[in-house]
Design a protein around this nucleic acid. Structure first.
Lengths: 226, 226
DNA sequence: GACCGGATCAGGGGTTTCCCCGATGGAACC
DNA sequence: GGTTCCATCGGGGAAACCCCTGATCCGGTC
């Protein structure tokens, strides 16, 4: 926020664009390249796989990253690129202003999150700032991260739309499941049959949109259910 | 960052100062009250106890909070005030730019952290922004929070006798396993066959004395391998 | 050169998980 | 008195997981 460094004195910041809409990429590229020489677009990609390869090849300083893409989220790109290239800075650029999207991509290592309502000029400024090591967020979005980071003051295990959907019995099962119990063990613990356990697990998986009990285990521990 | 709301149109933001140096408080109060009518200082305190009482009495929107005080840190004020007055916003204002100070006070619920090198004008702007629900950090400081929040990829996983027993490849497999990847996914990620994945998992289970991959998942996340 | 450990792969077999389907009894709500 | 939701149970099947054994190749070490 307070950096008055004279940008014109240095090399342009090398930027890589990741977004599954070619038209959007073209727009951003044109805007960034035309309005300033502070940034320079060195490559772009329309999928996770392309992004991983393209970033490794072009070695940008900053990656502008769409959060939702057909073959995986922006977080996936982060997870695959960061181990190899820890110095690349990621700035999420998304239509979504949902807290869970922001948190997920920041948790994966992005250093900022701006929505696509941003103007070209502001985007340039945001790119330069993250390249300088600053964090950049659209208004309100930083609060999501801080809330998630802060110790909730007594405010209990966390409330979530998905969590509210679960019935009491489903939570019982989930608690044990997350602790590593096998279905059979859960069954004997709760005095119900394995089949009933399966039914509950199925419901939980469906309601949480997760695909297996391993993710469920992590999901539950994120929510302090264990 | 992008809010162009006309401040002059609304009520001044009510600010409470907490700092153990009376002279510093006087300076801030004079500056804030003189240079603008966007903010108004409604009270001040030189200790944690005074702060808790004063904030409850004056009901400010924003509290400027020193991090280090004789009878407890700023985090202590936060912990005691927030349960009663959840709508009060805290902005840390400190000489320290140490990561642990920043993290501690943000974890306690502060919505920003600026150092005392800030100018009066910038401080006013920072106060207004946090009152608007934005997060405000001096340059570089936000990065500390994001780093602490992000899943750490390289940064010092815990060491353990069992962990030392694992071969590098076994750790690769374990990392993905703990993230909820299926064997098949791990195989394609690491360019090995499912059978090899099974072998590695078996070795890890044997070495860690655990009985299945769910326990393994929790074990790994306890050790920050994920 | 022999030995050992790490990494890779494979076969075979048993267990567990997951996902369809359907069913019953009870409570709550209109 | 029907409808809806919850909790319970089951069959059948596909996929994934776990374990055991055995095998090859490679890079160190003694």
């Amino acid at each position: 926020m307070l950096d008055d460094v004279t940008q014109s004195q240095r090399e342009p910041v090398k930027v890589f664009l990741v977004d599954d809409h070619a038209l959007f990429r073209a727009g951003v590229r044109t805007e960034l390249d035309s309005i300033t020489d502070e940034v320079r677009v060195v490559g772009e990609a329309g999928s996770v796989a392309e992004a991983v390869a393209g970033i490794a090849r072009t070695k940008p300083q900053v990656v502008l990253l769409d959060v939702h893409m057909p073959d995986g989220g922006g977080a996936e790109v982060l997870r695959r690129v960061r181990p190899e290239l820890p110095d690349v800075v990621f700035l999420a650029l998304s239509v979504s202003d949902a807290a869970e999207d922001v948190i997920a991509v920041i948790r994966a290592g992005a250093r900022g999150y701006v929505t696509k309502t941003i103007s070209s000029k502001e985007l340039v400024r945001a790119v330069v700032r993250v390249a300088d090591g600053d964090a950049v967020f659209s208004p309100r979005l930083a609060g999501f991260v801080l809330d998630a980071f802060a110790d909730r003051p007594g405010s209990a295990p966390i409330n979530d739309p998905e969590l509210d959907l679960l019935t009491p019995r489903e939570r019982d099962v989930l608690r044990l499941l997350a602790r590593g119990y096998a279905y059979k063990e859960i069954a004997s613990e709760l005095f119900i049959s394995v089949k009933t356990v399966e039914t509950h697990v199925s419901s939980v998986l469906r309601k949480t949109q997760l695909s297996n009990r391993y993710e469920l285990s992590r999901w539950a521990s994120d929510r302090r259910l264990v």
